[in-house]
Design a protein around this nucleic acid. Structure first.
Lengths: 331, 331
DNA sequence: GCCGACGCGGAGAGCGCTCCCATACTGGGG
DNA sequence: CCCCAGTATGGGAGCGCTCTCCGCGTCGGC
């Protein structure tokens, strides 16, 4: 083992051809005589030749790997884990299909961010995918300025190609469902407003209410269950007559469910509840949660496709995927 | 934008020194006159120079990245997700501390495995970490044969440096706890025997029983909840007099809990139950599950340390981390 | 029968970097 | 005052690969 790996040169010598010819064979060019091609292939097999990737990418200027940058502090929100896992897995296997490799980078700390920037600008990767939800995150901006294709999972705060689910439309869907079932006084528990998803969901709620000429009543949470419960209590104090609530994510909806029960309101009889995300647990709550499902796998797939498509050939720099209303018992 | 990135050469020209000197400065060698060093640094900053990693690793023969190869079919076992997520995060940030990058690779299909082998042997990475639990997995064997440091998370079926938790000891701990609390007839629900962890846990169970001269009674599950319930039913049929059960993982323990309830046995009064893993849900079962916790983060950290240490300098090729008995209400 | 076209293989440059080695220059001791 | 050690800098080779020429040979058409 210790010995150096065989080079193109060695293969060429063994097959009695030139380096160029071996290169042509290895890279699958058609202009090679079948007989010579076979000889080369045999030499490759005998020597166990594998091209040196550093040498190759030095001249081709591409690396066949794409970075997936996750810029959330680890396990920040518990509900992120399944999402993280699913997105990582989808991205990775989708990339594999295209003959590319996923390089996972965490960018939780400022130093880590700097490392990411260096890594990317040193030409390690052919593209960058961002998984980052906070508006204050400096990374999307930084990445957008580098001359490497970059896309984001979810709408970033800055101008950057991205694929998002239709948060506005999903929220509208939720509220319209409430409206259609005869609810009159529909409150919202909004998410942290430094996240675009939270902003968009609030916008959807407002749009839907405005369209039907109803007043909005909003409490803001931070996407955790506890904050959902607190927000629900406030909402109940402010407007005891409310008969429905739209929570910007399921975790907060679960909190709302608990607060509602504690306040003696029946769900859905007295108050209807709709969540957002369709997390695993939504099916196990009491009552099971009506919610908005968004296509995580499709979104990840679309993101991969986007980053792999040269900007010039893209139909659009922005993909928005439809959401789906999942009706269970809570509304 | 658009234009080529500046090279060492450009920096040298601007700083009016030679390439070699710039290289020395960039790589932090001490033998450079402070004045010249400053001039170089200034040129670097002005030009926004970042070293080309391909060129560098072509000559240094190292890439500063390490592969993390996950060879489970995606989301096979639901309980794997948190583990996957935690290990990935730990490995990634631990590697970052050492100035290395994590390259995540999925090797679920045979083609993907082949890709991994090519990737590794083409010199893309300086080391490989394996996350694979099945004995039938051919990858550990393949990787062990290449001249790149490889380590495994969990004991692999083949000879390969690894860091594992003490599955044998943990199972012994569990059984001993049962023994100490006066249980006389202790059954086991074993995991799939093509996984080393499952083998070891069964061994621990047997060892502990043998030490106290008791007979073992074993049903085999596949680490899922449903299989735990089924196994429990069988155990109850075979030996209605049993008063304790050790399940090789928590998911199966949860299944056992359900089967026990359905059979009218009270836990822990009639039958004591101990699980393994200490998953999130172990705290929420009824009754809360007594279980064996193993140090996931420490294990991942130790694995990183192992792969980063040249074989010659290693104290040992095998690290085994202690487990901890978490006593709740089920036993 | 000659010439152009075309197909295929080879030579060689060069990608951006590191590192060995030679060279210049400094200072201290004899 | 000269020489030699010691130290900082430059020159240059070469890592392994791709790709652009270039040339050779063959074939077909007029």
């Amino acid at each position: 083992m210790g010995s150096r790996r065989p080079t193109l040169e060695a293969v060429a010598a063994r097959a009695r051809v030139s380096r160029a010819t071996v290169s042509r064979v290895v890279n699958g060019q058609s202009t090679v005589d079948p007989e010579i091609r076979d000889a080369v292939l045999r030499a490759v097999a005998e020597l166990g030749y594998v091209p040196n990737s550093a040498a190759r990418s030095l001249v081709t200027r591409q690396t066949d790997s794409i970075a997936l940058v996750v810029s959330e502090p680890p396990t920040r929100v518990f509900s992120d884990d399944p999402l993280f896992s699913l997105v990582v897995r989808t991205v990775s296997s989708e990339l594999e299909l295209a003959g590319k490799q996923a390089v996972l980078m965490l960018a939780s700390s400022p130093q880590a961010q700097a490392r990411v920037e260096d890594y990317v600008s040193s030409g390690h990767v052919d593209g960058v995918m961002l998984l980052s939800m906070h508006g204050a995150d400096p990374l999307p901006g930084a990445v957008a300025r580098m001359d490497v294709p970059a896309v984001s999972y979810g709408r970033p705060a800055v101008e950057l190609p991205h694929v998002d689910n239709d948060n506005v439309g999903g929220a509208e869907q939720a509220v319209r469902h409430l409206l259609d079932s005869g609810r009159r006084r529909i409150a919202a528990i909004a998410g942290p407003q430094d996240m675009t998803a939270a902003q968009d969901r609030l916008t959807g709620y407002r749009d839907a209410l405005r369209a039907s000429d109803r007043r909005s009543i909003v409490a803001v949470g931070d996407f955790t269950r506890a904050s959902g419960a607190t927000a629900m209590r406030h909402l109940l104090e402010d407007d005891p007559g409310l008969d429905a609530v739209f929570a910007a994510n399921d975790l907060m909806a679960v909190g709302a469910l608990q607060a509602l029960r504690k306040a003696g309101r029946r769900v859905p009889d007295d108050v209807a509840v709709v969540g957002f995300d369709d997390i695993e647990a939504a099916d196990f709550t009491d009552p099971p949660l009506t919610t908005i499902r968004h296509p995580v796998v499709e979104q990840a797939t679309a993101m991969v496709r986007l980053v792999l498509t040269p900007p010039a050939e893209r139909a659009s720099d922005r993909v928005v995927l439809p959401t789906e209303l999942i009706v269970r018992d809570s509304a």
